[in-house]
Design a protein around this nucleic acid. Sequence first.
RNA 1: GCGAGUGUGGCGGAACUGGCAGACGCGCCAGACUUAGGAUCUGGUAUCUCCGAUGUGCAGGUUCGAUUCCUGUCACUCGCACCA
Length: 805
Amino acid sequence: MQPYDTQSIEKKWQQAWEEAGIFHAQNDSDREKFYCLVEFPYPSGQGLHVGHPRSYTALDIIARKRRMQGYNVLYPMGWDAFGLPTENYAIKNHIHPEIVTQNNIAHFKAQLQALGFSFDWSREINTTDPDYYKWTQWIFLQLFKKGLAYKKEMSVNWCTSCKCVLANEEVVGGVCERCGSEVVHKVKSQWMLKITEYAQRLIDDLDEVDYIERVKTQQKNWIGRSTGALITFHTNVDHDVTVYTTRPDTLFGATYMVLSPEYAPIEDWKREGLIQNVPAVEAYQQEAARKSDFERTEMAKEKTGVRLEGVAAVNPVTGENIPVFISDYVLVSYGTGAVMGVPAHDSRDWEFAKKFGLPIVEVVAGGNVQEAAFTDVETGVMVNSGFMTGMTVEQAKEAIKDYMTEKGFGQRKVNYKLRDWVFSRQRYWGEPIPIVHCEKCGYVPVPEDQLPLKLPMVDSYEPTDTGESPLAAIDSFVNTTCPHCGGPAKRETDTMPQWAGSSWYFLRYADPHNNTALASKEALAYWTPVDWYNGGMEHTTLHLLYSRFWHKFLYDIGVVPTKEPYARRTSHGMILGENGEKMSKSRGNVVNPDEVVAQYGADTMRLYEMFIGDFEKSAPWSTTSIKGCRRFVDRVWALQDLLNDEAGETPALQKALHRTVKKVTGDIEEMKFNTAIAAMMALLNEIDKVGSLSKTDYTTLLRLLSPFAPHVTEELWALMGGEGFCSVAPWPTYNEALCVDNEMEIAVQVNGKVRARVTLPADADQAAALAAAKQDEKIAAELAGATVVKEIYVKGKLVNLVVRK
RNA sequence: GCGAGUGUGGCGGAACUGGCAGACGCGCCAGACUUAGGAUCUGGUAUCUCCGAUGUGCAGGUUCGAUUCCUGUCACUCGCACCA
């Protein structure tokens, strides 16, 4: 037996697979397709992280198994290569981002190939390739034509360190998700995408897809649908104010009103001299504008505000005059930017009322509203509410909505927390937005036949302090002619966010070299939707939501044949450092995959990542545990010594073998890779106990293990004289009849405690089991002098005798 | 605060639909082979007051029977966070 040398074996087979093209998907095929996908990585300078292969190995196992089962499998890989780290690295080291990207990709690709993933490299894509981003730009133009891309002067999240606009989704806890620096507000003119137009469909169509529940709830919460009402209050300043509320039933308890400091009509009132305390109001407005998101969150503990002296509103049902305030606890960007204050039944309003000494009027009985706001909608009963008094909250909600509609001061309204997508970035390393601004014609799309609009080569791509994109400094790029009137015009200099290229990449894999469409209709009809998509939970409200939005848009304009891009979505847990903390350079707990492969081999690395624990949960890396997986591979290799004949099967092992095939086949589908591997380890223990193994059984085991440890099994397959590649050999089948025992061990309980075990033939019935149980010496002793009250028999499992002494 | 999830040996983790808790692996202990062992092989390994009892974060409940279902509670993780 030759020694097991991972280095030579793994290289050899990786090359052989690529040369034979056995992992290439076929576009014209009668076979059933299976499209499985993992999130393509951002090729960072740090190279592959041990977290990447967890997802890639899992779906590689599924892809390989499906191939062995005869499917036409598409398992592609590519590069999400636009992005800030590359640009920052380029600036620091004076290398063009394109070169940085090329180098990083080469490094990443070599690392991935060393792990033996069965990617179809002939379909490799790269979002920074002009032939690719041509279609990213094309999709943007379609959005623009349908009015779903628009430019808007607005307050945006501005990262002080990246000098760049961030989407709401990229601001975490008031700081930049990427660099952790402070995020402030800045008014800028930005390209926006109307994702809000799709809010309801993005919720509704979740019913049609098979996503793990966590992902569905997180998306629903993010979109944040709420049902309520718009209610209009008359004021003494001849300007009605409309508020949004989810609790119109509490209208009788509205004792004041609060406007956001940015509420636009306030400026008119100031100008018209309707507000008597303008200096105090303006001071508050300036203070609120100055605060960053982070400060606002921090200061959220205590309510602040200023009353608008001279302004009063009228509660439409009580007819009473109520005071009007401004306060930063009301957000200008949600609802109407104005709310009615019902201190008795909203905890924020309660705090505000206490601070400002406003009346607290109870309209839902059930709590003590002087002590705390009573917000329970399940048990409350209406009081002090005119015609609604005595109703439940639910009844009152409907009654008041009907009433206000009839009287004309209000209407039903659905609101979403989801905001439109800020699509502009003031950066160099992104897709140029293909729009030209003409003094006469306004925003004009670049004609489609001029795509791709390429990034110009420049010397400096440093961000400017003014907040302009580096592209703004390149006159030859900026100055152009209007495609519409031919007059002088200027190009848009903002670029797209990183999420653009990844919002449709899965479509490109279906037909990656097409230069007349993003992919042919036939290819899309055959391959979409993605059958199985695995990725990180951190992408649930970003990439996953954005790409569903784009896909739905492409469906609406007839480009793709399905409403939803992904039929099934699963998610993996993180791999933590050995100390149980997130891996990071600063914590010094990073594991380098190259070193693991060099020391143990790719097969061991793959096995360990799958064996480490429940796939959906995070798990700490262990440098000692991985040895167990290497031992397992060594023992599989050493089985060559136990081969004893040319004969068919090893009778003593038949049951164990068939059961293992069944277990592994099922576990892979449920992503229970850890128990699948455990089952194969148990089988190995069984084989060692028996002490001999037939070649037939050995090759069955090799095929079963092949998706997990493809190199060593391929080598052993060749040594056994197997036909073709083990990687595409038929998946082993099992005989159900051979999986069941002809004997069963039954636990015998007395009053729920196990007292004995009896062995019975598999076909024994209840009577036989009970009789055998009672004959057992120990049980007989237990039963002496007692009455059996109840006898329970669970087939194949246990007997429980309930006795009374 | 709201939403989602997780608590099982020294460690990572198993346990179908309520039916023998601790599969498999690591580590550890003992032995074998060795000049040697951080290699390999064999056996053992939840706890205790060890012929018995206890044990799946804690306290209850339902049940013949609960890691699994229900109620309450504590701790941790993740997401959102003044969304009216």
